[in-house]
Each structure stands twice: as C-alpha cells, then as structure tokens.
Design a protein around this nucleic acid. Structure first.
Lengths: 318, 318
DNA sequence: CATCGATATGTTATCGCAAACACCATGCGT
DNA sequence: ACGCATGGTGTTTGCGATAACATATCGATG
C-alpha cells in the first residue's frame, strides 16, 4: 500500500520511505500493472479514437490535434481503424469499449444502430467529429460538409464559371464526401446550374488518378470551365495535367479541391481549396473529453466550425 | 463460467445454453470487461507500436503493414508517438509496458539505456524496425540506412555526377537520416568525391522548403550538378523549382530523394528515389510478433531488406 | 498526563473475469 | 454390468492493484 501511494503521489508518505521505494522500484525495474490498477480503481486513462483510415493525411492531422491536447492531461489516445466499413467500425468500437476507456472520439455521425447503442450505453463521453450534418449521440465537433459544398458552389458561381465538372472518389461509404457533393449540386441548382459531367475513381496514386480523370473528363466535355475535386490530391494531379497541357488557369478553366493539405503550397500554382479545420477539430474533441473526465463540464457540446475557402491561383475571385 | 465459455468459444457448451447466453448478452448490451479478463488470464491481445511521428507519410505506411497482418490475428496494435525524443520514447514505452502488451514494435535501434532495459526485462517479443545498423534488443527488421546512402552515392557517381550537394532535415535525433548521410559521404569519399555544399531545414511545408533550399544552395554553388535530398517531399519541391527555372534534368543537374512515396508519380518528372520497404517492414514485424505469440517461433530474427533504387526521370542511368 | 490531530503505515475486501478443478449425466466398448 | 471417456455445468481461487478502513507513532495542548 505504501508503495502504491508513493508511485501515485497520493496520501502522506515520509520522505525516507518514499526514497527507498523509488530506489528499489528502479532497481527492480518495476513496471506497475495498469490492468490491475484499472480494475481496482475502475479508472482507465485511455481515450478511444476511431477513424476510417490512417493513410490519407487527413486523419493523421486530426490525431495530431487530439494528441496535442491529451498530452497535457493524464489521458492517452488509442486508435482504431475502420476502413470506412460500418461493421468493422462496430467491431472496433466493441473491442475498444471492452477496455473501458474514459472517452470515445469517433469520426462521422453515421453509425450502425448497434454502434450507437453501445456508445449510448457505455456511459462515457463521446465526441463525434468531422461532420455535423445530423444528430450526435452525445457531443459533436467539426464542419458541415453539406455547407462546405454549398460555399464552394457559391464561390465558383461568383467566379463566373458555369460549365462545372465534379471529380471524386468512388466511396459509397464516405458520407462526408457524399454530403459535400450534395451540398454542391444543391447550391448550383439554386443558381440554375447543373453539373455537366462527373468522374469517379478508386485506389491508386491520387496524383496520377487526378491527371487521368482530368484528361478523361475533358475529352468527353471540352467545354468545362471548372473542375471541383473531392480532395486536394487528385486536384493537384489535375492541376499538373492542365498546366502541362497549356491551359490558362484560372481564366480558361478553374480548379478547386478540398482539405487544405499544406502540401499544396509549393506547387507551380496554388490550388483553391477549403480548410476542413482538422487540427482544430481534433483539439476541440480532446478538450471536450478532457473536461468531461475531470468533471469541469457535463453537458453535451455541438460545435460547427466554419471552413475557410482559399482561392489560391486556380479560382477567379468574384 | 458458462457465459465466459460461450463468449470466448472455449470448452464445450450445449447449443441451447449457448443460444440463451448470446441472446441474453445481446439483450443486456453486455460488453465483457477486458481489463478483468486480461488480469485473470494474463493475456493481453495488444501490440505496442512506438513510432516518432504520424505526420510524414512514412510511419502511417508502416502502420498499414502492421495492421494488415495483425488483422488476421487476435492482436491489436496500440500506437505511441515519441516526437523523435528519446525521453518521450522512454515515457511512452513505460506507459505501454504497464499495460502488459503481447509484443512491442519500436522504430529505430537507438534507445536510452533505461528503454533498452525495460524492453529486455519485459519478457515479451520486441521488434526494432526501419534501421538495422546496430544491435537489436531482440529482433530487428528494416533496411540499412548507411547502405542506402552508399548505394545512392554509387548510383550518382556512376551517373557521372561529381559536384554533389546534400539537402536534409535539421534533426539531430533522426538517426536514420544521419546514417544515410554518413553512408552517402563515405561512399563518395571512396570515389574521391566530396560534397560541395549542404543545406538543412526544419519545420514548414516540405515542398516549399525544398524550393527555397534548392534556390539557396544553387545561389551559393552554381556548379552543382546533383542534389541529394533526405526525403522525397523536399526533393519534389526542388524538382518543381528547377523545372520552372528551366534547368535540364537530369542532364544539367540530377536529383534524388528518399522514401519512395508513391505520390511522386504524377509529378511532371518522376523523382529518383529509394524505397525504404516500409510496408514490408511493417508486415514482417507484425508477423514476427504474431508467430512469437502463438509460439510457432521463438528465436530472435534479424532481417535486413534491400532498398530498391528508382531512377525515375531525374537521375542519369549509368 | 490524557486526549487529540496529524502523519505514517498496515490490513482486508474488492474489482470482473478465467484457470483449475470438481461434479454429474450420458453413451460406448468390452 | 462395469469402467471410462466425453460433454456439459458449477465452485473456488487468484490475477495485482486500489479503496476503505484500521492502527501506530509522535508532538502539541489544555
């Protein structure tokens, strides 16, 4: 018990014994067993973070935000990957919850009924991130992708473009991309404009795919004067292609991506894009969990951030 | 006990009771407490993965390999980030080990004495990855960065380049980059060539930095006919700059990076680079842990992979 | 000097599960 | 008919820590 007290800095222990304990622990290479500790105290300093993927730059950035904030607390993030598959998400969630974490940060607000039930039943703070078009189980932080699509549509219309093409990923399960697309077409429709053509891809190097898709869509529809890409990588590929092909950008044809990958700076021309507030979303989500855990705050939070548009060199300003 | 048997598929249970248990568990929303389970069985299906960073594309790819393999087992990766700081690594490692994972995969073979002691004392399989220039605690998988530097130096010399510049990150603690640099200069020296100039950076968008550094180094040394970049991102930035400035590549000046980021395809010219076998390293490391856990194999493994050079369009072939 | 409070240390029960073993019923071979 | 393996279920114990409570020590205080 005294050892336990020393190692946790709890309760009164004389300086002498404290020293002795620390000394001996070090000498023995003693590593406390958190499993036993957690069982006894029913306190687990883990936060489950459930995201679809780790390989496309956007989630790592959210992670960075989460890590930044949690680092100042006792909490530690544990990541689970779903691969955009709802059943996998359910499995990962179950697995995570069975470790009784102190909180859950999960991407998106579309989940299976079972997942939602588990989250609700867990009794721990839950923050759904990166999409606020819907009703959260508990708290929610991020941008509205529908609105992001709308705002980009507005900017494009204001720029005077009318023959618009859309290029995206072939992911039925990427709800955020879908909502962006929906918001985009809705807003265009309000302006009396309809998408001229669209092109989807899956897999492969996004940069290469961007080139190929751009070539393909322009072959079909040479009149296009704007291309809206569902992410910056394919946008960058398209930009590369168009520059090489000698197009005048943004006069003859305009381009925009989505995400604000800071990799874009440094390209021959800077691609227009829209910031998804990823770092900030991660930070905020972690803050919410942290303040819930320490009891500072108890109510659910819903926070919609406003994505900023960057015109770069590929979208005519109004 | 019967419930426990049903949920773990262990031992004989009649079909009738099994059904009843499953049914009831679902109805109650029962989530087994892994903490208690782990304590009782002293089995934890977690593998600690300790890496310096998540934000530069290379570690996520290793993670992908690890995940791929572990997915076919009961094991689950848990990630810890060190930020290239040895003391942070020590802290993270301690934290992880206190959860008594089934194995550890850790980047690099340079660790504090305390870290090494902990790894040894833990009694679990340990795989040190991505660097094989040194002695591992237990197993080790990856490439020799010293050798990678040497091989690139050879290729450059064979290409006929003699006025060589080096551009890299200012990371005293990135041992792999350092070893690559050392191997590079050693091999050049053997060919009677010495680096003409070098340039280091830290922070910021790698693409932009690559442009700036390239401009700077060429302003100082206009005679340079080859630039070796310590990663592909700054290399791509440099490539961009040189193309815009109208250099003849790879005739007038050659370029090479390191890492084989598949993003490079799709650039106006494909940057020469060297594959670090990241995916394969991750897969192999996970396999080693898995086979150790299931007892298939008990001996330490040391495996050095051979990085493949890609000439692309920026390095003259011999 | 008895009492009290504070500091310092020890004892016991408990967390939720699985290992180990005990037990009973059934069916099979000899 | 008997022993024995097997399937199906229950009981007890222990994992390694912490919570809660108990005890010891000491000095100050009235």
């Amino acid at each position: 018990m005294t050892v336990s007290r020393v190692l946790r800095n709890r309760g009164d222990v004389s300086e002498a014994t404290r020293e002795r304990v620390l000394q001996t622990a070090k000498q023995l290479g003693y590593v406390p067993n958190k499993i036993a500790g957690a069982l006894a105290s029913s306190r687990v300093n883990l936060v489950a973070v459930i995201i679809p993927s780790m390989s496309n730059m956007v989630f790592p950035e959210v992670m960075t935000g989460i890590t930044q904030v949690l680092e100042e607390t006792q909490l530690q993030p544990v990541v689970g990957i779903t691969g955009y598959m709802p059943e996998k998400e359910e499995k990962v969630l179950f697995e995570m919850l069975s470790w009784r974490p102190s909180g859950v940060i999960i991407a998106g607000i579309e989940h299976t009924d079972a997942s939602r039930a588990m989250l609700r039943a867990s009794g721990i703070p839950v923050v759904e991130i990166m999409d606020t078009d819907g009703t959260p189980v508990d708290s929610m932080v991020g941008i509205s992708h529908r609105r992001a699509g709308q705002r980009m549509a507005e900017a494009i219309l204001k720029g005077g473009y009318r023959n618009i093409g859309f290029l995206g990923t072939q992911m039925a399960l990427d709800h955020r991309a879908r909502k962006r697309f929906e918001g985009f077409t809705e807003r265009l429709a309000k302006g009396g404009v309809e998408i001229l053509d669209k092109e989807f891809y899956s897999g492969g190097s996004a940069l290469v795919k961007g080139r190929e898709m751009t070539q393909a869509i322009l072959a079909r529809e040479p009149d296009l004067d704007f291309l809206y890409y569902s992410n910056d990588m394919i946008g960058a590929g398209g930009l590369m292609y168009l520059l090489e092909a000698g197009y005048d950008i943004p006069g003859q044809i305009g381009l925009a991506g989505f995400n604000g990958v800071n990799l874009l700076k440094g390209l021959p021309k800077e691609l227009a894009t829209m910031d998804a507030c990823r770092l900030e979303t991660g930070r905020r989500a972690a803050q919410i969990i942290a303040s819930r855990v320490e009891g500072t705050q108890t109510d659910p939070v819903s926070e919609t951030m406003e994505p900023r548009i960057t015109y770069g060199d590929t979208l005519r300003r109004p």
